[in-house]
């Protein structure tokens, strides 16, 4: 799939933001006054920024509001609802936190909505049978772990952040390994795509058009093996790095900053691969597999 920057940013930032908000609304960190204002502000900025970024890849951004209509069937629609609900639910918690009040049950609801948003986002991809690599339980798990690890790092919870980062790194490696086998496991081939397998072995003779088209730009993206191996390593190491940083270095804004930077770098690399390495079955028709 085409790794569109807007979508990569959207998923990474909003994931991070909602993760952080979850920690705040659960009261696992309890900044006071200005600190609270800044923390919630950051959480909101990331989450909303991400959502805004997501509209950049729409053909008709002005109609984005319509995306709320199909919650019954569409994960994208559900994401819209849950994200708005989450943002609203966080507001009172934030206000009270600035006043120094610890979030109570209401905070719990807000946190659930925040993580629910991340789950919905992940399900948009996980539901697609046409992209075997995504179409797996590990996709939501991965998205949630990204949110939690990122959130914990921002929250400065050194121990859980380290643990979550290592878990994430592990899960990421598993995802890469599982993912590589998914397309073959699904069993779609040019033979099943054309039904010509009954005669013999099909191969592309001529493409339908020598000119390009939307499908090929959007759904057929080939990454060199070397390139992806490098990026995979970078991604895994970067998401694990916060554990080392947070445990080895003395606490403080510097080490936290480094940890966040490492996590973000890993998340972006991982998310770029998430799209770039995902193969859509339509590629079969074009002999791209």
């Amino acid at each position: 799939m085409h790794p569109a920057p807007s979508v990569i940013l959207f998923t990474v930032l909003s994931g991070l933001g909602f993760g952080f908000l979850a920690f705040l609304t659960l009261g696992l960190v309890q900044p006071q006054g200005l600190a609270a204002f800044l923390s919630f502000g950051l959480g909101y900025a990331l989450a909303v920024g991400g959502l805004v970024a997501s509209t950049f890849h729409l053909g008709q951004p002005t109609r984005a509001w319509r995306a709320f209509s199909q919650w019954r069937s569409s994960w994208l629609s559900r994401e819209a609802w849950v994200s708005v609900a989450a943002l609203l639910a966080c507001a009172p918690v934030a206000l009270r936190a600035m006043g120094g009040v610890v979030p109570g049950g209401w905070g719990l609801i807000a946190a659930v909505l925040c993580l629910g948003t991340v789950l919905c986002t992940s399900m948009i991809y996980a539901q697609l049978a046409t992209v075997p690599r995504w179409n797996h339980w590990i996709t939501p798990v991965l998205f949630l772990l990204f949110a939690l690890a990122g959130g914990a790092i921002l929250a400065g919870l050194r121990v859980p952040a380290g643990v979550l980062s290592l878990a994430l790194a592990g899960m990421l490696m598993t995802a890469f390994r599982l993912g590589d086998g998914r397309f073959a496991a699904r069993g779609s081939t040019l033979a099943t795509a054309t039904g010509l397998g009954s005669i013999g072995t099909p191969r592309v003779f001529e493409q339908p058009h020598t000119g390009g088209n939307y499908l090929m730009r959007e759904m057929i993206h080939v990454v060199g093996r070397k390139h992806s191996q490098k990026l995979r390593a970078i991604a895994v190491v970067s998401v694990a790095l916060p554990a080392v940083i947070l445990w080895a270095l003395p606490g403080g804004i510097v080490s936290n900053g480094l940890a966040v930077a490492a996590h973000l770098a890993g998340a972006l690399a991982a998310r770029w691969l998430f799209f770039a390495e995902a193969e859509h079955v339509v590629g079969l028709y074009y002999g791209q597999r």
């Binding site: 890849h57 109609r63 779609s188 499908l215 959007e218």
Partner: peptide
């Protein structure tokens, strides 16, 4: 008139039957 051009339907189609129009921004 209701399409926001998110492209998700094209992703969901196994047969490459949907193309987003670059001018109109709709599927």
């Amino acid at each position: 008139s209701a399409c926001i051009g998110c492209g998700l339907c094209a992703w969901a189609c196994p047969y490459g039957a949907r193309e987003m129009d670059a001018d109109a921004g709709v599927m």
